[in-house]
Structure formats: C-alpha cells, structure tokens
Amino acid sequence: MQRVNMIMAESPGLITICLLGYLLSAECTVFLDHENANKILNRPKRYNSGKLEEFVQGNLERECMEEKCSFEEAREVFENTERTTEFWKQYVDGDQCESNPCLNGGSCKDDINSYECWCPFGFEGKNCELDVTCNIKNGRCEQFCKNSADNKVVCSCTEGYRLAENQKSCEPAVPFPCGRVSVSQTSKLTRAETVFPDVDYVNSTEAETILDNITQSTQSFNDFTRVVGGEDAKPGQFPWQVVLNGKVDAFCGGSIVNEKWIVTAAHCVETGVKITVVAGEHNIEETEHTEQKRNVIRIIPHHNYNAAINKYNHDIALLELDEPLVLNSYVTPICIADKEYTNIFLKFGSGYVSGWGRVFHKGRSALVLQYLRVPLVDRATCLRSTKFTIYNNMFCAGFHEGGRDSCQGDSGGPHVTEVEGTSFLTGIISWGEECAMKGKYGIYTKVSRYVNWIKEKTKLT
C-alpha cells in the first residue's frame, strides 16, 4: 500500500490518463441519441435557420407576430419608411378606419389613436360632414345658397324668414311668412316636400332668348283662358290664391305678392273693366268669414305684352289694390325667389296649380277651390304637342294621358313649387288646347323671366 501511494504521488498524470480511459469505455446513459432527441424537440425550422439574422431580410411573422416588435424591426421587413409607417399605425392600436367614419364618399386613412378623412370636392370637416359648395344638395341650405369668396357655403332665406341657429334652416321672422300653410287642420295635408338634388348652379339658368321682337298675326285659340281631375282644397291650404270678379264672377285667378299687390295673367284683364279681388276665398257660393274683398285701382301688364300681336306672350300683369290686405292664416303671400332659384325650383319637376275653373272641358265651374299636382314636361315634348308657338318664356306641365289639367277660369292662378315646406311661385296658368285632352298640356308663363320686374313694381313704400 505504501508503494502504491508513492507511485500516485510521483505520477499524477498517469492516474488522470487511467481515469479518462475508464470513462470513455463506459456506456453513456444520461444523453439520448440524435434521433430520439429530435422526437422530443420537434420544432419547425425557421426561415433563416442556421444563418445569422443580421444578414437576412426581415420576416413579418418572425419579427412582429411571434413577439412584439419595434418600429426598427418592422422597418427591416418593409425596407421602406412609408410602408412601415402605414403598417405601424394599425399594428400599434388597430384600424381606426374600420367603422368607416368618413361621410359623403370620403376616404379614410388610419393613424395612431386617430384617423384622417380625405374629402371629395365640396366637403370638409373631420368626417367630411361639412358642405362647402352650393353645387351639392344646395349646400344643405333649406332655401338659398351662395358661395363666399373663400368658396364656403353661405345660406340665406327669402323675405319674412331668418336663418336658424344651425345656419342652414329657415324659420319665420314674421307672423305670416310667405308660402307657408298655417291653418292647423290643413298642415297635415301639406304636399310632399321637395329635397334639393345635386345641381350645376353655374349652368342652372337656361341660355334662352326671349323672342321679344317676333311679330306674329293673332292666333285663334280655343278655350285658351284655361282644375280638371283635381281635388277639393281645404280652407287655408292655398292662402296665396285669390279669385278675380268682373263682368262675371271667378273669371280668373291670381296670387298675393304682398298686402297691396296681386300677380295674374295679362290676358285676364281689360282696361276700363272694374275688377274686384277676393282673398281668403274657399267656396265661392258661401260666406265663410275668411274672405277679404278689395278693388283694383291700377293694372300693370308687362311692358312687352301686346294682345294685338299675341294674347299669351309675356302673359303676366300686376294688380294694385285700393287697401292693403290683412295677412292671416287664410290670406298669405306666395314666396318669389330670384331668377336663378325660381328656375331651379321649376326644374324640380312638379308643381301645384289651383283655381275655381271648370271641372271638365266646357263644363261647370268649381264651387270649392280645386288643386292638382302636375309634372313638368320637357321642352321637346311640349313643342311636338301643339302647332302653336311655345315661346321661351312659357313652359308645359300636365299629363300625356289627359284627364287632369287646369281649365277655363283658372287662368292667372299660381303654379307653385314647394321647397322644404315653403311654396314659391314658378308659373302662372296661361293657356292650353281644350282641357285635359290626351297628348295636350297646360301652358304656363315662366315666372323666372319676370321676377325682377315683379319685385321692382310691387315694392311697398
């Protein structure tokens, strides 16, 4: 034993070699072989497995989906700052455009905790909710729209109204504003409101030439003092309507412009014939205590009207009353817009006519005020429907199939267009061939041609 100890002390290297040989010859039971080890760690190889990531292109799944990435790591994937920024906006807080917040056709661009709407022409605001041009839906104005110097929408209202708090709607500024039905039992019968379409306001006024200088022999019209197929109006439903009495009662109609003036057809009036105007009328054979009678003290036909040349060209006249009318729910003026808007309103496509005229061709006159909704007829169809001249200051309205029309005794009465609950004068009943005849239409004086003249002559002093 002493000898062994001496050998170990003198030859430590020998001992180490012996131990190493023993270990190498022993069977290893701690580690699995290569094949079995792979069965336990069965993990798919990654895209760049075996390579240094710093030297390969980034992978979106590896960089940002398996674990949260930084902007720089995302930049490695896209290799483009702009594309990385677009991805980053949604990656950080989701897609803010998912709810489609942009209105009126706006395009949404996502941002971090926010979004941006790219608005089409005519709109602005956070969600493109603000109209900035009158060309689109009248700028959301209830009545009139004008573009300011910086191309912003400025709404306005006709006389007797003021802008509401929203700067879009119009509200009454006087007790009985024009064009409004205020009798409670008839307010439910107000005709369907007309909503502004998209309009090209630059070209809204037709490029028409008034044929002022045409000389033409007097034409022989049949029954051209021209509501057939209409309905009984309720008291106060058309408070701007008046009836004219002269040699015979209810020979023509008219509309209240203001307390002192009536507008009617020029062919209705004769110099030297006494005319009485009755406002607030409903049943011409009954006294309903809503009527107001006034005498006409002055007749002003349009300066281009000449019955000797043509009885229905420039067929418009103004009547001055001896005493002002007292405005109330049964006696209310009709609204008159400017030339541009009167023309736009007419193009809405349908209007209402009213009167006490004959209820059928050569038949009896109506006792109760009649009204009828009539569609506008395109000019080409209008011209083809008659052998008589249709001037540019006239328009056609009615039904091709016949059966409904204005008729004798309705002449001078109103053709009105309702705009968001307020009625505007767009025409004056003038003439036609018979009444409600198939293929024939009622012919009306186009008020847009005469609004400046009306307003100039009827100013209240």
Rank of each mutant, 00 (worst) to 15 (best):
S114M: 03
V202I: 11
G412W: 11
E98T: 12
A266H: 02
T386W: 13
V248G: 12
G229T: 04
Q90W: 04
Y305T: 02
E165R: 06
D95H: 13
E193S: 13
G246S: 08
F121E: 11
I316R: 00
M8N: 08
E418T: 07
T276S: 05
V227G: 09
V269F: 04
I210T: 11
R404Q: 03
M65P: 15
S114K: 07
N100T: 09
A337C: 02
I336N: 00
V451K: 03
G432I: 05
R294M: 01
A164F: 03
S411F: 15
G409R: 10
L327P: 03
E171N: 06
V228P: 04
R140G: 08
E159K: 04
E420D: 11
C102G: 02
G179C: 00
C178D: 00
I275H: 05
T276F: 04
K339V: 05
F123G: 11
G409N: 15
Y444C: 03
H415A: 03
I112C: 14
G21Q: 03
V269R: 01
A265Q: 03
N127D: 05
S25I: 10
M437D: 12
I316V: 10
E286N: 10
E418L: 12
T218F: 13
G355I: 03
V77W: 09
I112D: 13
E142Q: 06
L24C: 05
C119E: 03
L425S: 02
S184L: 09
A192S: 11
K152N: 14
Q241E: 04
G398C: 02
F196T: 11
E82M: 15
Y201C: 14
L130A: 06
F87P: 15
G21L: 10
T332D: 01
L24S: 03
P177V: 03
N393S: 14
V416M: 15
I334D: 00
E456G: 10
P333N: 05
K440D: 13
L211S: 04
E53F: 04
K168Y: 10
H303E: 13
N80K: 14
K446T: 06
N38Q: 12
Y330S: 02
F176K: 04
G122Q: 09
G442W: 04
H415Y: 03
P197D: 08
C97V: 03
Q219T: 09
T426C: 00
Q96M: 15
A317H: 00
V278M: 06
F123C: 04
K455E: 07
N304R: 12
E418I: 09
C435R: 04
R379A: 09
E66Y: 06
A307G: 12
S99F: 14
K39M: 11
P172Q: 09
F71L: 15
C268E: 00
L41M: 12
D111W: 06
C268V: 01
T194E: 10
R180H: 07
V92G: 13
C435S: 06
Q241C: 05
L346N: 05
G160Q: 03
N38P: 15
E401R: 13
G230E: 11
F55D: 05
G413K: 06
T461C: 08
C18G: 05
N310E: 13
E124F: 09
N203R: 09
K362P: 07
S156K: 06
F31L: 14
T426D: 00
D338P: 11
P301C: 08
S406H: 13
D378H: 09
L244I: 04
E340L: 08
R191Q: 08
G357F: 11
I390Y: 13
I454K: 02
M8C: 14
T287E: 11
Y161G: 00
Q237K: 04
T264N: 01
A307Q: 12
L60C: 14
K455N: 12
N166R: 02
L211V: 10
W431V: 15
R3M: 06
L32Q: 13
S354L: 14
V377I: 10
G439M: 04
N452V: 07
T332F: 06
I17L: 10
V228Y: 10
G351S: 11
G398F: 04
Q2L: 10
H415E: 00
D212Y: 08
I390N: 15
Q167K: 03
C28R: 00
C396A: 02
I454P: 01
A233H: 04
D410R: 13
V92E: 15
R379G: 15
L327E: 03
I300Y: 07
K347E: 13
L425A: 00
C157L: 00
Q57R: 10
N166P: 02
G412R: 03
I40E: 15
N203I: 07
P235E: 08
K387I: 07
A37P: 15
L376H: 08
T29M: 12
G236T: 05
N304G: 05
Y391V: 07
K51V: 09
R140F: 07
C108Q: 02
K234W: 08
I256F: 00
N38L: 07
K362L: 11
E79G: 12
E418K: 05
N135G: 13
L372G: 15
E456R: 04
I390G: 11
V263C: 02
F176L: 06
N138K: 14
D249E: 10
L376I: 14
N147P: 07
V202F: 11
G50M: 09
E98P: 15
W88H: 15
V174K: 09
T225Y: 10
E281M: 09
S430T: 14
G427L: 01
V257L: 05
F71N: 15
T225L: 05
Y441P: 14
N100D: 07
D212L: 06
V257I: 06
R162L: 08
S107C: 06
A26K: 00
S430F: 03
E72S: 10
N295E: 05
C69G: 09
G349H: 14
A265P: 04
C128Y: 02
K234E: 10
A397I: 02
R140T: 10
S187M: 09
L319F: 03
F71D: 15
H314T: 02
G230I: 13
D223G: 05
D198H: 11
A207M: 06
R46Y: 11
A397D: 02
L20I: 05
H282L: 09
A37V: 15
K152E: 14
T417R: 02
E285Q: 09
G229R: 09
L60W: 11
C396P: 02
E433M: 09
G402D: 06
D150A: 06
H303W: 07
G94P: 05
P324L: 03
E129I: 04
R298L: 02
F395Y: 04
Y91E: 14
I214T: 11
A380S: 04
E35G: 12
F424I: 00
N151V: 05
V353C: 06
N127L: 13
K459T: 15
G412S: 04
L32D: 15
A337W: 02
A436M: 14
L327D: 00
D405P: 13
A397Q: 02
I429V: 12
Y47C: 05
C145V: 02
I275E: 02
V416G: 05
F224K: 10
K188S: 09
I334T: 01
Y91K: 15
K347M: 14
E286K: 08
T445C: 03
E165D: 10
R373Q: 15
K459C: 14
C252M: 01
A317V: 04
F121K: 09
E165C: 05
R294Y: 01
D338F: 02
E61I: 07
E456F: 04
P301R: 06
G398M: 11
G421R: 12
A366K: 12
W431K: 06
E72Y: 15
R358K: 15
T133P: 15
G106E: 03
N343P: 02
P375H: 13
K339A: 14
K89Q: 10
G355M: 04
F221E: 10
P44S: 11
E79H: 14
Y450W: 01
W261M: 02
V447P: 03
E72N: 15
A380L: 07
L327R: 04
G272K: 09
N138I: 06
S406V: 03
E124A: 11
I429D: 06
L130F: 15
A436I: 14
D322N: 13
S11N: 08
R3S: 08
N343S: 13
A308K: 12
S114P: 10
K311I: 11
K440A: 10
W356R: 15
R298S: 10
G349N: 03
S423N: 15
E61R: 11
T332K: 04
Y444M: 13
K188P: 14
V181L: 11
N59V: 03
E79S: 06
